[in-house]
Lab assay of single mutants.
Amino acid sequence: TETAWISLVTALHLVLGLNAVLGLLLLRWQF
């Protein structure tokens, strides 16, 4: 079960990281 939790947490971190990068790019394009 630990491996499943680790994979789930890493997936969440990757998604949050991608969202942060996309958000910064969108803000930079708007201004």
Rank of each mutant, 00 (worst) to 15 (best):
A11D: 10
A20H: 01
V21F: 12
L16H: 00
A4L: 09
I6E: 00
E2S: 02
R28S: 06
Q30N: 12
L8D: 02
L18H: 10
G17F: 14
T3M: 09
V21R: 04
H13K: 11
V21I: 13
G23S: 13
L27F: 11
N19I: 05
W5F: 12
V21T: 05
V9W: 07
L24T: 02
W5A: 02
W5C: 04
H13N: 14
G23M: 15
A11V: 11
L25A: 12
W29S: 15
A4Q: 00
S7G: 14
R28V: 11
L24E: 02
W29L: 15
F31I: 12
N19W: 02
A20C: 13
L25C: 15
L16W: 08
A4S: 09
A20W: 05
Q30L: 12
L12E: 07
N19A: 10
L18E: 08
L27C: 13
W5R: 08
G17R: 03
L8E: 05
W5T: 00
Q30A: 13
E2I: 02
L14H: 00
L27W: 10
R28A: 06
L25N: 02
W29P: 15
L22K: 02
L22D: 06
F31L: 12
I6Y: 02
L22P: 06
T10V: 13
E2R: 01
E2Q: 03
A11L: 11
L16F: 06
E2T: 03
L16S: 04
V15E: 02
F31C: 12
Q30M: 15
E2V: 03
E2Y: 01
T1N: 13
V9L: 12
L24Y: 03
N19H: 09
A11T: 08
L14C: 08
L16N: 04
L14K: 00
L16V: 14
L12N: 10
L12G: 08
T3K: 09
E2G: 07
L25Y: 09
V9C: 00
L25S: 06
A20N: 01
R28I: 12
H13I: 15
L26T: 08
L24G: 11
L27Y: 03
N19Q: 04
A20D: 10
W5L: 04
W5M: 10
L22I: 07
W29R: 15
W29K: 15
Q30P: 00
L26D: 04
W5Q: 00
S7W: 13
V15L: 14
L18T: 05
L22M: 13
T3A: 13
V21H: 02
N19M: 04
T3Q: 07
S7D: 09
L22Y: 05
A4G: 09
R28Y: 09
L16D: 09
L8H: 04
L14I: 13
L8F: 04
L18P: 08
I6C: 03
L12F: 13
A11S: 07
E2F: 01
W29A: 15
H13G: 15
T3G: 11
N19G: 09
A4I: 01
L22N: 05
W29T: 14
A20T: 07
L24C: 13
N19Y: 03
V9Q: 08
T10N: 11
A4H: 07
